[in-house]
Computed example of a mutant assay.
Amino acid sequence: MISQDKRCFLDAPLQSILNGLGEEARTRGQNGRLYAEKLVQSLADRLLILTRTRETAWLTNNLDMCTRRRITDRLEATPDADFDVETLAAERGCSKRHLFRTFRVSTGRSPHQYVLDLRIEKARRLMLKPNLSLMHIAMECGFKSDAHFTRAFRQRLGVPPSIFRRRL
């Protein structure tokens, strides 16, 4: 019997295959033997893929290159979007804690710090446009308030955004 606690299956394709097998068992093989065999083969293939691609990454607490690229591409494409660690962890098939740990080992920063750095870099580029206010830039870069923007900017660059902009 498949576990009722589906949270233990963090890999979405694996969860889908297991759900299909569970449904096939509940309906007593209504879709036929060939379909059930295909599901079992898909399960074996998926487990093989998961162990091959992630085996060394899990052992070394490091992100595999494909996963790292997918996460960083998403974060870089939308640095102003709300950061959803649960979704990223679920896509990778791991816990949030493991994602944080492996991301930090791979990049030297936590996912949150990485996103803040991307937002600050975007803000620096937008400051070259004199017609944009600092408040507009803060909102455009995903900061919830002007104070949060100023604090993050000062921590990373050593000066508040207003002084940085005057020096441009």
Rank of each mutant, 00 (worst) to 15 (best):
Y114R: 02
G108E: 07
T107C: 13
P130V: 01
L128T: 03
L116M: 09
S106P: 02
M139V: 05
S106Q: 07
A123G: 06
L134Q: 11
D84W: 01
F83E: 12
C94T: 12
A90E: 13
A138Q: 08
R109L: 15
D117W: 05
L75N: 07
V85A: 14
L116F: 07
I120G: 02
L132F: 12
H136Q: 15
L134W: 04
R104S: 13
M139C: 01
S110N: 07
F103T: 03
E86W: 00
H136S: 15
G108Y: 10
D82V: 12
L116G: 02
L132P: 05
A89I: 05
T107R: 04
D117Q: 10
P111T: 06
G108R: 02
A89C: 13
M135A: 15
L116I: 12
A123R: 03
V85H: 08
G108D: 11
T87L: 15
T102V: 12
C94S: 12
S133G: 15
L118D: 03
L132G: 03
K96F: 03
A81D: 13
E86T: 12
T78S: 14
M127W: 06
H112K: 12
L134R: 05
L126T: 01
E76Y: 00
R74E: 14
D117K: 09
R101P: 00
F83W: 09
C94H: 03
T78D: 12
Q113I: 05
V85K: 13
D84H: 12
S95G: 09
H136C: 08
S110M: 10
A81L: 05
H112E: 15
V115H: 00
S95M: 05
L126I: 01
R109K: 14
L134H: 09
L88Y: 10
R125K: 15
A123S: 09
E91P: 02
M127Y: 01
R104H: 12
R97G: 11
L88T: 00
M139F: 10
L116V: 14
I137H: 07
R119V: 04
A89Q: 03
Q113N: 09
T87N: 10
L88R: 01
R74W: 04
L118V: 08
L134D: 05
D82E: 14
D117R: 11
V85F: 04
D80F: 09
A89M: 04
K122Q: 12
S95P: 00
F100A: 08
H136P: 00
H112V: 14
I137T: 08
D80K: 07
Q113T: 14
F83I: 14
D117P: 00
V85M: 15
A123V: 04
H112N: 07
L99E: 06
A90C: 10
E91M: 11
E91T: 06
L99A: 02
V105T: 13
A81C: 09
V85P: 06
S106H: 05
R124M: 11
M139W: 01
H136M: 12
A81H: 12
R119Y: 00
I137Q: 05
F100H: 14
A81I: 07
F103P: 10
D117E: 07
Y114S: 03
K96T: 08
K122R: 10
Y114E: 09
I137L: 06
P79Q: 06
V105E: 11
